[in-house]
C-alpha cells in the first residue's frame, strides 16, 4: 500500500487522467521521470499534515492523492501562469537560472 503511480492514476480516466496529462505536459515538459518524482513528493508533503492523523493508511494516502489532484487541477485549469509547486520549492537539475526579475507579491 503506497502512493499510486501516475500510470495507475491515468488508467482511471476522467479527472485523474486529465490531472496526470496536464501535470506532466504543462508543468514538467513531458518529463515523466520528474513528474512521477514530484507527484510522490507532493503527496508526501500532505501526508505530513495533522489532518492525516487518525486516518488509516489507505485513507490517508487516498486523501492526500485527491488533495494534490484537486490543487493541481484548480491551478492547471485556471489558465494563469503556474508551475509545479515542487519545482518551485526544489528546482530540478538544470543550468542556473538567469537573474530573476523582482516578482510582484502573491
Amino acid at each position: 500500500m503506497s502512493v499510486r503511480s501516475l500510470h495507475e492514476l491515468h488508467e482511471e480516466g476522467g479527472a485523474p487522467a486529465e490531472f496526470v496529462e496536464k501535470f506532466a505536459a504543462a508543468w514538467h515538459d513531458g518529463d515523466w521521470n520528474t513528474a512521477e518524482d514530484h507527484w510522490q513528493l507532493l503527496v508526501n508533503r500532505l501526508l505530513r499534515s495533522r489532518d492525516m492523523e487518525g486516518l488509516k493508511r489507505r485513507d490517508a494516502l487516498r486523501t492526500a492523492e485527491r488533495e494534490v489532484q484537486n490543487l493541481g487541477l484548480s491551478l492547471l485549469r485556471s489558465g494563469a501562469p503556474t508551475r509545479c509547486p515542487e519545482c518551485a520549492v526544489a528546482p530540478p537539475q538544470r543550468p542556473p537560472d538567469p537573474p530573476r526579475p523582482m516578482m510582484e507579491p502573491r
Binding site: R45, L46, S49, E67, L71, A88, M103, R106
Partner: peptide, 18 residues
C-alpha cells in the same frame, strides 16, 4: 501542520514563481 496551511503554501509557490 494543518493540511490547509500546506495547500496554501503550495498554491502560493506555484503561482508566485511561475
Amino acid at each position: 501542520r494543518e493540511l490547509s496551511e500546506i495547500l496554501e503554501e503550495l498554491r502560493r509557490s506555484s503561482t508566485v514563481a511561475s
